[in-house]
């Protein structure tokens, strides 16, 4: 299986620099800004020696300036690790194959993420869910090297067949407390209350929504003709008499849906990143670095 639309330069970069606008509270030294003080990293503040008894970091200038002749030491931020989770929607709707294969896009994205997370020394976990959390796709975050090979193998072999996205909410419990980075990978074909429920359940984390969309399901819909569509999840069939007016209404509807998602995601910190047909790695890197799409 060779994808003609994926030349070598389209391959995922070895690193995705995900920068965080918050400080990790993890203890382990890592690549991100942490909440704890320790050696190295950014200068944080100056504290009396008695409170932070590390005479190696005596700040002479501040100590000399102190009219009470107290001794002060500099304190530095400890760079910390974060835990990164990829929450992948594996409901049947992700099995849609138009210009691309959404499940493969999701797997590619997870592969790139896993490798980037490894390089940063962070922990990576993967949870696949449809109406419930899929047992065979539940990998709690780990730093173990090579663990992602099994995750990705199972993700690539997984045939989406479930319906619903309720599992995302359940997955929040598995992810646990403590702020983490959550990549929410889905086509977001779900009603607004459901989206809100998922974001609400994951509210304490840094949610990075990645929308997998396909031009064949929207922009490249035929303008004329009879179209027989079957809902991949529910299995219901519907005949659509395509005509330009309906086509435009359809685009408007999807525009509204995306705007809804954007406003919900915005409330939780980040705007969604939309993947159309193929992953634009450069743009994704920029999005992860800058925090905006």
């Amino acid at each position: 299986m060779i994808d003609p639309r994926r030349p070598e330069d389209d391959a995922p970069p070895p690193d995705l620099p995900y920068q965080l606008a918050w400080r990790s509270s993890e203890v382990r030294a890592g690549a991100h800004r942490g909440k704890r003080e320790g050696a190295g990293g950014f200068f944080r503040d100056v504290a009396p020696l008695l409170r932070s008894p590390d005479p190696r970091r005596l700040d002479l200038r501040v100590s000399a300036r102190d009219p009470f002749e107290g001794l002060h030491v500099r304190r530095f931020e400890q760079k910390a690790t974060v835990t990164v989770y990829a929450l992948v929607d594996v409901s049947a709707s992700m099995g849609f194959r138009g210009a691309s294969d959404k499940m493969r896009l999701a797997a590619d994205l997870c592969a790139a993420l896993a490798s980037a997370v490894r390089r940063a020394g962070d922990a990576f976990g993967l949870i696949g869910c449809d109406a419930e959390v899929q047992k065979e796709l539940t990998f709690l975050a780990t730093r173990a090297r090579g663990s992602e090979v099994e995750m990705l193998r199972r993700l690539r072999n997984f045939t989406p067949r479930g319906a619903g996205t309720g599992g995302m909410v359940d997955a929040a419990a598995l992810v646990g407390g403590g702020r983490k980075v959550i990549f929410l990978i889905s086509d977001f074909y779900m009603p607004r209350p459901e989206i809100e429920a998922i974001f609400g359940a994951l509210a304490r984390h840094d949610i990075i929504p990645i929308v997998l969309s396909d031009t064949a399901e929207l922009e490249r819909l035929p303008r004329w003709g009879l179209l027989s569509l079957t809902d991949l999840e529910v299995g219901r069939r519907r005949l659509v008499v395509m005509r330009p007016r309906l086509w435009e209404a359809w685009q408007r509807r999807s525009g509204r849906r995306r705007a809804d998602l954007k406003s919900i995601a915005g409330r939780y910190g980040r705007t969604p990143f939309v993947v159309e047909d193929r992953i634009d790695w450069e743009r994704l890197s920029g999005y992860l670095a800058g925090g905006v799409a």
Partner: peptide, 18 residues
Amino acid sequence: QRRQGYPSLAGVEPDGLS
């Protein structure tokens, strides 16, 4: 008609004529 999968009929514009 041949069945064609579509992610979600919720995304399909409802249409009386159809």
